[in-house]
C-alpha cells in the first residue's frame, strides 16, 4: 500500500471527472451491431457457395432478392418506427388489404390514377387508424397493431374471399424490368434505403426520431413534437405498405387475401438482425439494409442447396438470438 498509486489515481480522476474517456475512433466505427450483420452477410455468401455450386451467380442472387424486396422495403420504414420507440405489426396485413383494393379497382378497368389513389389512399387511412388509436387514444402500439393486423387481414378476406384477383397482363412483371442492371424492385429498395438513411442520419428530423425513442419525456421538454413525429411515421408505414403491395401484385400477377401472411415477423427480424434496439433510440437504416440482404442470401442459399425448411428455421432462429445478444452487449458497453 504505497502512496504513489493513490496519488496518481486521484490526479487522473480529477482531470476526467466530467466524462468517461472518449472511445477510440476505430471502436466507434467498427464496434457496432451493423458490423456483425456485415460479417454474417459475407459469411453467408461464402457458405451459400459451399452448400451449392449453383448459388454464386450474381444475377440469381439479385433476382432472388426481388422475392423479399417488398417486405424489405417495409422493414426500412419499420426501423424508423422502432427507433422512435413504437412498433407496427400491421404493415403486412395493410399491404394485403391495400393490394386487394388496388387489384379490385383495376378489375373494373378504371383509369390507372384512380386505382393508384385507391391503393395509396387505403394505406394512408390504415396508417391514420393506427396513429389515431396509438397517439390519439394513447394506447400501446403493440396491442393496437396486433388488433389492426387481424382486422386488415380480415377485411382483405371479406373483399377478396378465397379467390384471387388477377390484374391485366401489362401490369405484370416489375421484377423482370432491369434498370441499371438491377431488377426494378431491388433498385426501389436501394433508393429508399439511401433516402431514409439520409433522413435519419443527416437531418434534424432524424435526430428527433432518435431522441423521441431514447426518452420521450426529455424530448418533449426539449421542444420536440414527438406525437407529430410518430403520427407521420405510422402514416408513412401505411403508404409504404400500399406501395409494397403494388410491387408484390406486379410480381405475382394476382393477389389473394393471404398476401405476405406472417410477413410482419420477417420485417421485425430484419430490423433486429440489423441492430435496431427493440426499446427504441438505437438502430440504423444501414443495419436493416444489410440484414435484409443477409436474410435473402441465407434463405436463397439454403433453398438452392435443397435444405429442409426446418433447418432453415433453426439457422434463422440461432442468428436472431445471436444478433440480439451481440446488440445488447455492444449497446451496454457503449454508453447510451
Amino acid at each position: 500500500m504505497s502512496e504513489a498509486p493513490v496519488g496518481l489515481n486521484s490526479t487522473v480522476s480529477a482531470t476526467h471527472r466530467d466524462a468517461a474517456p472518449p472511445r477510440p475512433l476505430w471502436q466507434v466505427i467498427f464496434v457496432r451491431p451493423e458490423t456483425l450483420t456485415f460479417v454474417l452477410l459475407v459469411l453467408a455468401i461464402f457458405a451459400g457457395g459451399q452448400l451449392s455450386p449453383y448459388f454464386l451467380d450474381i444475377r440469381y442472387i439479385l433476382d432472388s432478392f426481388t422475392l423479399t424486396a417488398e417486405l424489405s422495403l417495409l422493414a426500412l420504414i419499420l426501423t424508423l418506427v422502432i427507433i422512435a420507440g413504437e412498433i407496427d405489426l400491421s404493415p403486412a396485413s395493410a399491404m394485403a388489404l391495400s393490394a386487394c383494393l388496388f387489384a379490385y379497382a383495376m378489375s373494373f378497368d378504371w383509369p390507372m390514377w384512380i386505382c393508384v389513389s385507391i391503393g395509396i389512399g387505403s394505406g394512408l387511412i390504415m396508417g391514420a387508424i393506427n396513429s389515431a388509436l396509438i397517439i390519439g387514444l394513447q394506447l400501446p402500439s403493440i396491442i393496437v397493431t396486433i388488433g389492426t393486423l387481424t382486422l386488415y387481414r380480415g377485411l382483405a378476406q371479406v373483399i377478396a374471399g378465397d379467390k384471387s384477383i388477377r390484374v391485366p397482363e401489362w401490369y405484370i412483371g416489375i421484377d423482370k424490368v432491369q434498370v441499371l442492371g438491377l431488377p426494378a424492385p431491388d433498385l426501389i429498395f436501394i433508393l429508399a434505403a439511401i433516402a431514409l438513411a439520409f433522413l435519419l442520419g443527416m437531418t434534424v428530423w432524424g435526430r428527433q426520431i432518435y431522441q423521441t425513442g431514447t426518452n420521450e419525456t426529455a424530448a418533449i421538454y426539449a421542444g420536440i413534437r414527438t406525437r407529430r413525429i410518430k403520427a407521420v411515421l405510422f402514416l408513412a408505414t401505411g403508404v409504404t405498405a400500399s406501395i409494397a403491395g403494388m410491387i408484390f401484385i406486379s410480381r405475382l400477377g394476382s393477389v389473394r387475401y393471404d398476401l405476405g401472411l406472417g410477413g410482419e415477423l420477417q420485417m421485425v427480424l430484419m430490423a433486429m438482425l440489423g441492430g435496431t434496439y427493440i426499446f427504441g433510440g438505437r438502430g440504423t437504416i444501414l443495419g436493416t439494409f444489410l440484414a435484409a440482404l443477409l436474410l435473402s442470401v441465407i434463405s436463397t442459399g439454403m433453398t438452392t442447396a435443397n435444405l429442409l425448411p426446418a433447418t432453415q428455421l433453426c439457422v434463422l432462429g440461432v442468428l436472431l438470438v445471436l444478433s440480439i445478444i451481440a446488440t445488447n452487449f455492444i449497446y451496454s458497453r457503449t454508453q447510451r
Binding site: L67, S164, L252, R256, L259, S299, T300, T303, T304
Partner: peptide, 13 residues
C-alpha cells in the same frame, strides 16, 4: 400461396 415460389426459382437455378 407464395411459399413455393422461392423453391421453384431455386430449382430453375
Amino acid at each position: 400461396a407464395t411459399s413455393q415460389i422461392p423453391f421453384i426459382e431455386a430449382q430453375i437455378q
